[in-house]
Amino acid sequence: MVLDVDELINKVDVLPHNFHIAVKAAKLLDDFNVDINELSQTIGSDQALVTQLLKLCNSAEYGFSKKISSVNDAITRLGFKTLKSLVFAIVSKGSLNKKLEGYDLDKGELWRNSLTCAVYSKYLAEITKYKDPELAFTAGLLRDIGKLIVHQYVKSKYKKILKVVESEKISFYEAESQVLGYNHSQIGAKIALKWNFPKVLVETIEFHHNPEIAEGKCEDIKLASIVHVADSMSMMLGAGLGNDGMMYSMNIKILENLGLDATSSGIENLISNMVDLDSQIDSLMSNIG
């Protein structure tokens, strides 16, 4: 039963309610002349989101000595970029904190894996002097949303996909394409488009496994490259790993393009630093309720 991509996307639910707010807030925040009142009303229209946001920005992670007590307060003290990434993180939990049988991910595993990729993306953005580390966080967080749809089709064809991975020595997502006719990054991009995500997110979702072919199709190749490396690292270090596990390839060239040390000791240093970010991931896990 192979569905064509359009058919598949038609079956995707309309945007989960609070994603509307995140997308709208993101659009407002991207506008240089953002109207703070409109922004705070947009966020304030969802009380659960407000509660979450205040809890998160008052957690030790952000280290404000004076308590943030309102949305307006959060806007001025966190800054637009951080605010945007926190709003996306909060609304994403409803979608990403799900059991995905096809990838053998228990409830919570995709969520942890996504937060890990988000934190690693932000870290990589910082050390490679990427212009917007908070955007990298969001792109890393959402890169695998396609799995939410593709998993049910992967489930019925898992053995076949695995066979293709092994016989043709290709990565899991390439085998998804071969067997299903599409892969989770393509589908993810289509969902992101349907849900009106900012273009830059649509593109990084689409190319998170192969930024090397993104030239001309993706405006921000550096961001796609950052997410690619963060994705590979989060798989390698095992956080919320599914049955597609480490059957992805990381392109050394991408590391080099980012100006990272791609020797074996360079990579070991990078991993050592990334593992130390675990406490940040734990704190996000416990502070996004």
């Binding site: 990565s171 390698m236 480490m246 992805y248 390839s249 990381m250 392109n251 050394i252 020797t263 991993i271």
Partner: peptide, 19 residues
């Protein structure tokens, strides 16, 4: 000690599992 699937480059740089 699993290996990152990395046939493309045929390199061991990413074989942290093996190391």
């Amino acid at each position: 000690g699993a290996q990152m699937f990395n046939i493309q480059q045929g390199s061991n740089i990413l074989n942290i599992g093996m190391r």
